[in-house]
Nucleic acid binder design. Structure first.
Lengths: 199, 199
DNA sequence: ATATATACTGAACATTCATTCAGTATCGTA
DNA sequence: TACGATACTGAATGAATGTTCAGTATATAT
C-alpha cells in the first residue's frame, strides 16, 4: 500500500493546486467543479472522493494557506528588531504571499454572501478575529516599547485590518512591484500617524 | 393618463426600495428575483416590465445612490472651512449614507466576480476612479493650503480609498454609532500621518 | 492468483434562478 | 361605450451547477 497511496495523494494535490489557481483567478462562486475537472483531467466523482464538497475543498485551501503564512512569518519575524520593521515585514509578506496565494479574492467574495451561515463564513470571521488579535499584540508591543503613541489599540487594529483589506482589493490589478510600493506607502502613512517621532 | 402613471411609478419605486433593502442585507447574488417578488407582492413579470434585468435594477440603484450622495455632499461641503474638516465630513457622510444606503455590500461582492466583464463591473471600476479623482483633488487642496505634507498624491488617494473600502466591510456588523467612532479614528490616523502639525 | 480495499469514472439527478411570453386586467381617451 | 395602450400575472423555459451513485479499474495483501 504505497505506490497507490502516493499516486492518490498526488492527485489530491493536483486538484487542490488547480482549484487554488482557479479560485484566485475567478473567485469562489465563479469557479465550477466542471472548471476544476477541465483543469485537472480528473473526474467529478474523484474530486468528491478526495474532498467532501466544493466548500470543503475551499476550506482545505484556506487551512493550507494559513499554515504556510504562519510558518513563513515565524521564519521572518526574528529578522526584524523593531516593531516598525515588523509591520513593514507583514506588509511585504502580504504582497508576496497573499497576492500569489489566492484566496483573497474568494475570501472577500464570501464576506458578502451572508446567504448561508455556512462553515466558511464562520471560518472567515474567525480568521479576521485572529488577524485582529495579531495586530493588536503587535501594536501594543510598539506602544510598550515607546515606539508608538498610546491610543485605542483595538480600534487601531481594526483600522489596520481594514486598510489591508481595502488594499488587497485595490491592488488586485497591480503587479507585485507596484503593489509593494503601495503597501509600503500605506504602512508609512499608518505609522507616521501613530509613531512618536514625526518623519 | 395620470392615475395610472402615478401608480406605475409607485410600484417601480416600491420594487426599487425592496430590492435595495434586500441587496444590503443579503448581497447581490444572494438576492433572487423571487425574494423581491415576495417582498413586494409584485409579480416576476412586472419587475421585468419596470427593469431590464436584475443587473439593470442594480445599476438603477447605484445611479440613484450616487446622485443622492453627490447632492448631499454639495449641501454640506460649504459648511466645512478646512480640508481637514472636509475629510471628517466625507467620513461622516459615508457612515450616514453608505451604510444606510446599501449597495456597499453588493458592490464589494461584484468586485470579485470577474467572471463576466459585465456592465456592472465596468460601472464599479468607473466609480472607484471617480472616487480616486475626488480624493486626489481634496488631498492636493490640503497640500496647497499648507495643511498637508507634500507627498505622492495619487498613492495617498488610493490608500484612502482602500482604507474606506476596508472599513465599510469591517463595520458591516457595527451599529451606526460605533461605525462613526471607527471612521473618525481612521481619518484621524490618516490625517496625523499626512498633517504637518503633530497632534 | 484471487480477493479486497482503495482510487476513480461519468451519466443521472436535483435544485436554483434569471428570463420570457402569451394572456389578462386596468385605465385613459376618442 | 369601445378601443388601445399601459400595467401586470405566473407558468414555462432554459441554463448553470453541486452532488450522488452504481459501476469499473488498479494495486496490495494473502
Amino acid at each position: 500500500m504505497n505506490k497507490k497511496r502516493l499516486q492518490s495523494e498526488d492527485t489530491k494535490k493536483r486538484v487542490a493546486d488547480a482549484a487554488r489557481g482557479l479560485f484566485v483567478k475567478k473567485g469562489y462562486k465563479a469557479t465550477s467543479i466542471e472548471d476544476i475537472v477541465s483543469a485537472t483531467g480528473s473526474s467529478k466523482g474523484n474530486i468528491y472522493y478526495h474532498f467532501k464538497s466544493k466548500e470543503g475543498l475551499f476550506l482545505y485551501l484556506i487551512d493550507e494557506w494559513e499554515q504556510e503564512w504562519e510558518q513563513q512569518w515565524k521564519e521572518k519575524e526574528s529578522l526584524y528588531t523593531t516593531t516598525t520593521d515588523k509591520m513593514y515585514g507583514v506588509a511585504e509578506q502580504m504582497v508576496l504571499e497573499d497576492l500569489n496565494h489566492p484566496l483573497t479574492k474568494s475570501a472577500d467574495e464570501f464576506f458578502d454572501n451572508s446567504e448561508k451561515p455556512s462553515d466558511v463564513e464562520e471560518r472567515i470571521t474567525e480568521m479576521v478575529k485572529s488577524h485582529l488579535t495579531f495586530y493588536q499584540a503587535l501594536i501594543q508591543q510598539g506602544m510598550d516599547s515607546g515606539e508608538f503613541k498610546h491610543n485605542d489599540v483595538e480600534g487601531l487594529s481594526i483600522i489596520f485590518e481594514s486598510l489591508t483589506m481595502g488594499l488587497s482589493q485595490m491592488s488586485r490589478k497591480l503587479n507585485q512591484k507596484d503593489a509593494l510600493v503601495l503597501y509600503r506607502l500605506a504602512v508609512n502613512v499608518f505609522l507616521n500617524g501613530i509613531t512618536k517621532n514625526a518623519t
